[in-house]
């Protein structure tokens, strides 16, 4: 990096003026991003009267009645568990199936392999939401409408193209020496894949997992259509029920929204680098 040449020339505003302007823009934007989230969290600790009279004051953070109400009087925990189950199963399946396809395409030469890659790539372009009517009828005929299997099936299918895309590219860069050595030792193809190759694929699996985790965890559209049974609702869908139920109690609503945002926010802050790399993976080659 040649930092000097970047800074030693006066520009339009003079370099320092320009950097000052950029810093102001960044700070203003960060305030605009975080202020609404801070208001949401703080309102969760307030009563209605406090929110209406003093919306921007710092609350008493030891007053957790709204959060207790949300966790004990509503099906919040149920929805959370459903979301964890559905997201976990979908990510597991799409990584397993995606790895199988990518491994075959990237590691073996066979007739039609490039066509297969194209077949998966085509799925990247398809907004599956627009196929909701046939999916609805298909799941009804399969008898899995109004079950978690409907969601798991559609999320797995939705995530496969990006997973195959990310993993194929990665597996192709892995050196062949290791698997050749294992093959010399008489290891079976299955053994080579499981004990030699899969451990090497972990970085790509993290990227593909995060790329799909966020849209699956946050999805609202497919449960809206497929799930009617309240006990099976996922968190984003379940929120519409408890928001309706507590429509006049703003403190509880904000507490619920805060609780719902908490899991992914915490994971994001801890793993922000992986999240940013993962979620922009398709866009940044």
């Amino acid at each position: 990096m040649s930092m000097e040449s970047r800074y030693d020339k006066p520009g339009l505003l003079g370099t320092y003026g320009r950097d000052g302007l950029m810093q102001i823009i960044l700070i203003a934007n960060t305030v605009l991003m975080l202020f609404p989230i801070a208001i949401m969290v703080m309102s969760g600790f307030k009563s209605n009267i406090e929110i209406f009279q003093d919306p921007f004051s710092i609350p008493d953070f030891t007053n957790v009645t709204n959060f207790v109400a949300m966790a004990t009087e509503t099906a919040f925990m149920r929805y959370l568990l459903n979301s964890v189950l559905v997201t976990g199963a979908s990510i597991f399946l799409l990584l397993t199936l995606g790895l199988m396809a990518a491994y075959a395409i990237a590691r073996y030469e066979f007739w039609g392999s490039s066509f297969l890659l194209l077949f998966f790539m085509a799925g990247l372009m398809v907004p599956l939401k627009l196929a909701i009517i046939p999916l609805f009828i298909l799941f009804r005929d399969m008898g899995i409408l109004n079950t978690h299997w409907a969601l798991i099936a559609v999320y797995t299918a939705m995530g496969l193209p990006s997973t195959v895309f990310i993993m194929t590219g990665f597996i192709r860069t892995l050196p062949r020496e290791l698997e050749d050595a294992a093959r010399m030792d008489g290891a079976s193809e299955f053994r080579i894949m499981v004990s030699v190759m899969i451990p090497l694929c972990r970085p790509a699996m993290v990227i593909a997992g995060i790329y799909n985790l966020v849209p699956i965890w946050n999805d609202f559209f497919f449960p809206l259509v497929f799930i009617q049974n309240d006990a099976l609702k996922t968190l984003p869908q379940g929120m519409t029920s408890f928001i309706g139920e507590y429509a006049t109690d703003w403190g509880v609503m904000f507490a619920g929204l805060t609780l719902a945002a908490a899991p992914i926010t915490i994971i994001y802050i801890v793993l922000s680098k992986q999240f940013i790399n993962g979620m922009t993976a398709g866009a940044v080659k």
């Binding site: 960044l26 609404p36 984003p236 802050i269 979620m279």
Partner: peptide, 29 residues
């Protein structure tokens, strides 16, 4: 510039939140 890392995390935070949460929060706002 100083703080770029923090600004980068902040600007991307709403991207990971569910549209349902964002929609309801702003509806109340």
């Amino acid at each position: 510039l100083p703080g770029a890392r923090f600004h980068r995390i902040a600007v991307f935070l709403p991207v990971v939140l569910s549209t349902v949460i964002i929609g309801y929060v702003w509806k109340l706002f």
